[in-house]
């Protein structure tokens, strides 16, 4: 330990505010970025899942009525 007491560790001979402000901003921003990245991935997964479920529902509803008079064309959304 480079300091004699815990209060000496906090004040750092007057440089405490500078050092602690840097470490706080660094770790808060890093943690925030990690959290946001995880959340964005979850949102993307949920969007995919909703899309697949919607498609599955649609095909179930459409399936019993094949005898319609007009042909169904699968149009690519690309």
């Amino acid at each position: 330990m480079a300091f004699d007491s815990f209060s000496a560790f906090l004040t750092m001979e007057g440089h405490g505010p500078y050092v602690w402000a840097c470490y706080a901003v660094f770790f808060v921003l890093l943690a925030a970025m990690m959290y946001w990245s995880l959340r964005a991935r979850k949102t993307a997964m949920d969007a995919c899942r909703r899309g697949y479920e919607f498609e599955a529902d649609k095909s179930k509803v459409a399936a019993p009525a094949p005898a319609a008079s007009f042909a169904r064309v699968n149009v690519s959304q690309d």
Binding site: M1, A2, F3, M12, H15, Y18, C22, Y23
Partner: peptide, 24 residues
């Protein structure tokens, strides 16, 4: 970070402010 903040020796010239180096 913990090593740099609490255990590394201070610098002869800059004192403890140099500990910012461990994230800068």
């Amino acid at each position: 970070a913990v090593w740099g903040l609490a255990f590394a020796p201070k610098d002869y010239l800059q004192g403890n402010s140099y500990r910012i180096i461990y994230i800068h």
